[in-house]
């Protein structure tokens, strides 16, 4: 399978602090790829580099054959990378369906003129977007909550709404930042099912996760970061038996 995302020699420094240090890996099309590591290993920083929130200090990020290192977030979204956030970032005072409608922004073609005068084209597009948003809400199991303010949804519903909003950008690659954090075992099972459905739609999934059971079960390949460095890469079984990974998680003396 061809690589959809190729990260080469990526480093990110904040002043003297090296958050990500010379990391390289490839995410293949149609797989679930996981990024794990202890707290502060630089996982979210890496996500921020891939989605354009940080410009890499060194190294390149290649997505679908194009170099996207340093392009701003809205460009990477348009190119086909969607993401969710570790600490949920929804538009609190917009309804669930409006959150998802907003996700369509970069795929819409209405111009300022169309919006000002409510042209038939604009009306048709809005109608299509609403239908598609409802469909996505159904997909994540929030069909009944379309009109609630995002803020008033339960925690698990908010996580799923964020996934729906990300899917609305019609991504080729979906980055999930600790999607199962704070979930009950039942919710985790549902999340894994949802990930399979997303895969079924031809979207590659790249996730950060702390729950080892989820990671081992769901992902095909794993990269392990520690102190910003890549210390291991491979299948779940390979990573589990890797001495450096065990040290990183349990400390050297263990």
């Amino acid at each position: 399978m061809p690589a959809i995302l190729r990260v080469e020699g990526l480093s990110k420094r904040f002043g003297g602090l090296v958050a990500v240090d010379n990391v390289s890996f490839e995410v293949n099309e149609g797989e679930v790829f996981a990024l794990i590591g202890p707290n502060g290993a630089g996982k979210t920083t890496l996500f921020n580099c891939v989605t354009g929130f940080y410009a890499p200090t060194f190294g390149s990020i290649n997505f679908g054959g194009r170099d996207i290192s340093g392009s701003p977030p809205h460009r990477t979204a348009k190119a086909g990378i969607a993401r969710t956030f570790q600490n949920i970032r929804l538009f609190d005072y917009m309804s669930a369906v409006d959150n998802v409608r907003l996700g369509h922004h970069c795929r819409m073609h209405s111009k300022l003129w169309d919006s000002l005068f409510k042209t038939p084209f604009e009306k048709r597009e809005e109608k299509a977007i609403i239908e598609h948003s409802m469909e996505l809400l159904e997909l994540v199991g929030l069909g009944r909550h379309a009109d609630s303010y995002a803020r008033n949804l339960a925690y698990g519903q908010q996580r799923r709404l964020e996934i729906a909003r990300a899917l609305a950008t019609s991504p080729k690659l979906l980055l999930l930042d600790e999607p199962a954090a704070g979930f009950t075992p039942q919710e985790k099972v549902e999340l894994m099912q949802l990930v399979q459905v997303i895969l079924g739609r031809g979207i590659t999934v790249f996730l950060i996760e702390h729950d080892m059971r989820v990671v081992m079960q769901a992902s095909k390949r794993i990269v392990v970061l520690d102190h910003g460095e890549k210390i291991a890469e491979g299948t779940p079984a390979e990573v589990r038996s890797n001495q450096r990974v065990i040290e990183a998680y349990l400390g050297k003396s263990a």
Partner: peptide, 14 residues
Amino acid sequence: MAETVQRLRGTFFT
């Protein structure tokens, strides 16, 4: 070497 190239690219883009 690769790092030098990267650094040069960095300055070019800034």
